[in-house]
Nucleic acid binder design. Structure first.
Lengths: 344, 344
DNA sequence: CAAAATAATCCAAACGTTTGCATTTTTTTC
DNA sequence: GAAAAAAATGCAAACGTTTGGATTATTTTG
């Protein structure tokens, strides 16, 4: 592999000048810069970023930690972040935590060992407080949190308008005439879910409906959990559910279909996360679009612009069959899908 | 940040001994090794992998290049590869090419600059030959290809049983009594698609049906392309389609529904890639499961075991509504989904 | 107990860059 | 044309680790 020393030797100059020339420093003459660039091309030089990173004590890698890469929500976030970061000359090291705290800690340590320029993270369900994180990533490495964030951890944050979104989703169910609306609330260890629950409650109370804790089904995130929760919800006399996750809603639909409950006539559902499948299943699921691609872009920009504030990305309610029992204007599914990368 | 030099100073020994102690070298006394380990823990030492990599001329990063991360097929491959690689102490740097040749080349150069231990790659549609790749990644870096491979590029390969899969899928359509079966063939620049087309043709010919090139719809991969191709297919009198991709099949269904064609009564469809949505849409899509998670694991193992052969991962036909017009045994969707990570 | 063999540690160079400071070369100024 | 100023380049250390060979400490052997 050819190094700057090789180039320097070939041109009868020193490595420092070559380094500066390639970096476009004003301290080197135009003529030599061109000579160096030509020679570098000719010899097939490629910068050893490992060496450069060591010297500079910092890399051009940004670490992204997500619970699971294959959820569209997260892979779209990664896509959005990557699009911005690549543009700025950064590369992306991805770690999955599989929702486990230990994996999250291990991932943070790994990224620190690589001296990444920043960490973008959405916490695992199993991760319950910011203490370890604070300890592992000191002031050296900027940490940008998205979606699932710890408010007490300093640094930029990008979150969805969870409370607002849940509020409007629940309000929509109320407007559709559902009377006893439960919720698949997710995990209360995560603020995102706490806020959604708050929005749900607010909608009920501002409509004069009672908030009944027995209709709140906690620890519901994956398909099986949704299935089980729907069983209980139906037994408790629910006629609608607001789900804080898409896969749990899918599980709920599984059960309701099995139980012969008609959707949306007898039972309404709205869920968070506009995963691709939600528009394709029967009945199609009404969802809260979280704009993950934009969230990823915002998180990346927050790092590049060195921000430390919290950005709130609005959610958008997509009303589909699962909650639309009063027919209103027609809904175009294609239009929505064009907003994301999903069909590519 | 604490270094081995700090530890050495604290113990009154040299960095080399500390390095060897931490590496578990037999050249260091048991007692000092324990002392070093204790001190390292106490001082909160974390190895600077950048420095180590520079010295060793090689990193513990494996680069993975895929067309698009948010396709379940690829994100599951990444998940599979990661599960094996993490176990072995490697981390994963992911690059998306967005199906463009330039991005693929750029990604390869980036990974080479990082002196990655290996590259796992599935080629972009836009990438048409192995010349550039051969040039960029010399003999220094092992390159493991999966799914979309160049046969003339040396090194390990992991592919699906494309020909077999397409053969059985098409045969199934024939058995269901469809008479004029077309195919959404994908891009012929990729061997995977060429093989699927061959399997499709083989099935037709071995059933005594004519292979009609006007029923082969090329350059079909994304939803829109499937939509347009289905239009032409219907106009050409097709009554069934084998699609080499899942999203193009989705587009085809879009059009057929719009045109009022009944599936599977008047028109049958089978497609490759058991993406999550295929089992949820109406009609549910019959698919060829490619076992992407296992493919990813196989690719990672091929690197770790230093193999250079080609492994073929069998495909599995999931018969669902879109092709089942002769009712046979009941099909359990849950069973299949349990095979992958999708519902988590 | 001295010599030889072995074990443990140290020394110093290396990996390929970057960068503050010193030095040399070129240009400007009177 | 000499002194001063500015521009371009060179020098050498540094980033933190690894590692072959040299050195020192310890154990074994006759």
């Amino acid at each position: 592999m050819v190094t700057i020393t090789d180039i320097a030797r070939a041109l009868g100059i020193t490595p420092s000048t070559v380094s500066r020339a390639l970096a476009g420093s004003p301290r080197v003459k135009e003529k030599t810069r061109i000579a160096v660039e030509r020679k570098a091309l000719e010899m097939g030089y490629e910068r050893n970023v490992v060496a450069a990173n060591l010297r500079k004590g910092q890399s051009h890698i940004v670490g992204i930690i997500v619970p699971r890469i294959h959820r569209e929500f997260f892979s779209n976030i990664i896509g959005g972040a990557e699009s911005v970061l690549n543009q700025a000359g950064y590369n992306v090291l991805i770690c999955q935590t599989m929702e486990s705290k230990d994996s999250e800690i291990k991932a943070l340590k790994t990224l620190r060992n690589y001296r990444v320029a920043a960490v973008l993270i959405s916490h695992a369900i199993g991760s319950t407080d910011s203490r370890d994180i604070k300890e592992i990533i000191g002031k050296d490495i900027p940490i940008i949190q998205f979606d699932r964030v710890y408010p007490d951890l300093p640094g930029a944050k990008v979150v969805g308008a969870n409370c607002d979104g849940a509020y409007f989703a629940t309000k929509h169910l109320i407007q559709q005439g559902y009377k006893r609306i439960g919720t698949l609330a997710g995990y209360m260890s995560s603020l995102a879910f706490v806020e959604r629950l708050a929005g749900y409650r607010l909608a009920l109370e501002s409509a004069g409906l009672p908030y009944d804790n027995s209709l709140v089904f906690y620890d519901t995130l994956v398909r099986d959990q949704g299935y089980e929760a729907a069983k209980k919800a139906l037994a408790s006399g629910c006629d609608a559910l607001f789900s804080a996750g898409a896969f749990s809603a899918l599980g709920a639909v599984d059960y309701l279909k099995e139980a012969g409950v008609r959707i949306p006539e007898d039972f309404g559902i709205v869920c968070t996360s506009n995963e691709g499948f939600t528009s394709l299943m029967t009945p199609s699921l009404s969802t809260l679009e979280q704009h993950p691609f934009e969230m990823g872009q915002a998180a990346a920009k927050a790092f590049l612009e060195n921000r430390a504030d919290t950005q709130v990305i609005p959610m958008e309610l997509h009303i589909r069959q699962s909650s639309q029992r009063i027919q209103q204007e027609e809904f175009s599914c294609n239009h929505l899908l064009n907003n994301n990368q999903w069909q590519k």
